[in-house]
Amino acid sequence: MGSPTINQRDKYEDQLPKKDASTLDSRFPLYLGDWKKSDPRVDDDLAMDNMDEPHMKRKLAILKKYPEIEKLYGHDSRTSLVTIAAAAAQVYFAYLFGKVWTETFWGFIVFAYAVGGSITALYGVLIHEATHNHAAPTVFLNKLVGLTANIGIPVPIYASFRRYHLEHHTYQGVTDMDPDLPLEWEKKMIRGNAALKLLWLFIYPLMYVVRGAAMKKTPSTWEIYNIIFTIFSDALVVKFCGLRGLLYLFVSLWFGYGLHPGAAHFIQEHYTFDDGQETYSYYGILNKPYMNIGLHNEHHDFTKVAWSRLPQVRSIASEFYDSLGYHTSWLMVHWKFITEPGIGPQSRLGRTMEDHKTARKQAGKIRRADNHAYDAMAVDAQKEKDQ
């Protein structure tokens, strides 16, 4: 876990914009809260905040000082090429294990973890980029990229992830609305027990299915398309790679979304390691192969910036990000989460919809006071859903 020193914080404070008459939120400009993080040894539920999520307002504060960041908006077409290459590679490995390397067991397991799991974790990044329309110039083409990435994942993930992830951005931390928050049984059963947390991370791929089902929503049109597409692609894998080839994809999925360094960002992003901070970035070497997925504060602040330009956001507005707590090792993220009894599934921040809406109204007032560009995430998310 990285954190600025006191002297560094003083330096950053000198660089940060000061409050003025147009500032209507006491958290300005970093939008850190005054709440205490939940401790599973004594707390049964999430820590609660009475304010809205911080990212929209921090974006406004950053854009007021650095309006040139808006020039970074847009997609990166290289994402589509990476998606095609990754899908082709994983299907090729499925063929090798299904038709060629059929006698090895431990080689199958080791390869599925080290290579298959790593590629599958990358699929999650590619699907994330397509979800935000960062992979291609149109919404429809981004959906095709998402389906292409899903070829190497033997269950229909893309369309459901897109649906629920956009809701996560819109309603971050809002109880009963943010699909990324843990369920009641997760909070009650796991708590700070190291063995149970290890098991919980091992079955984390299942959590996506369970949490989605808990929302009790009728499948969207694209979710139905995704189901049909995946059944068809799985049938082709069985035909050309055999059942063992399909099993390789399943095992790769289980490893790549569970106890794998490339999956540690699921814990890194919003599990509260510090009081008052609900989103964390990762600044480590694995950002390179995983397309800067660790730059999560930067991404939530600027959802229209593709992965390749997120480092520029951090560089331009460094005083905003370097003064926040951050992680430098995904291995340590998992290690600390598992071994520290004061961290568990309920180490998240929640808020009611009423509090979120009340505090969010200030953003409109800030907009009128500052006369600055304002695009609400809720509006963007709805437009993307409609398309």
Score class of each variant (00 low, 15 high):
Ile157Asp: 09
Leu196Gln: 08
Phe202Ser: 13
Tyr164Ser: 03
Ile151Ala: 13
Cys241His: 06
Gly116Lys: 11
Thr170Phe: 01
Lys188Asn: 10
Ile190Val: 15
Val174Gln: 03
Lys239Met: 14
Gly146Pro: 02
Phe108Lys: 09
Trp222His: 10
Arg163Tyr: 14
Ala235Tyr: 13
Glu186Pro: 03
Ile127Tyr: 06
Tyr164Gly: 01
Trp222Lys: 08
Glu129Gly: 06
Tyr164Glu: 08
Thr218Glu: 12
Phe240His: 07
Gln172Met: 14
Thr230Trp: 12
Gly124Tyr: 05
Leu181Thr: 00
Ile127Arg: 13
Ala121Asp: 08
Ala130Asp: 03
Cys241Arg: 06
Arg162Trp: 09
Asn226Met: 09
Ala213Glu: 07
Ile228Tyr: 12
Ala194Asn: 06
Glu167Cys: 04
Thr221Pro: 02
Ala135His: 07
Ser220Trp: 05
Ile151Ser: 09
Ile203Asn: 03
Leu206Thr: 12
Cys241Trp: 08
Phe111Tyr: 15
Lys217Asp: 08
Val209Leu: 15
Ser118Asp: 06
Pro205Phe: 12
Phe240Trp: 15
Asp234Tyr: 03
Met189Arg: 14
Asn142His: 05
Ile228Ser: 09
Pro182Arg: 05
Ala121Ser: 15
Glu223Asn: 04
Ala114Cys: 14
Ser160Trp: 15
Val125Ile: 08
Asp178Val: 00
Leu183Phe: 11
Val155Gln: 07
Leu166Tyr: 07
Tyr204Thr: 04
Val115Asp: 13
Ala214Met: 06
Gly107Arg: 12
Cys241Tyr: 02
Asp234Glu: 09
Ala149His: 06
Tyr123Ser: 05
Val174Gly: 02
Tyr208Val: 02
Met177Glu: 11
Lys197Ser: 06
Leu126Glu: 09
Ser118Gly: 07
Leu236Lys: 04
Leu166Pro: 00
Leu181Phe: 03
Thr170Lys: 07
Lys143Pro: 01
Val210Cys: 09
Asn150Lys: 05
Asp178Leu: 10
Val237Ala: 11
Asp180Gly: 13
Val238Thr: 05
Trp185Cys: 03
Ile109Trp: 11
Gly124Asp: 03
Leu141Ile: 09
Ser220Arg: 14
Val110Cys: 11
Lys216Ser: 04
Trp200Lys: 04
Thr170Asp: 08
Lys239Gly: 01
Ser233Lys: 08
Leu183Asp: 07
Ile153Cys: 12
Lys239Asn: 01
Ala135Gly: 02
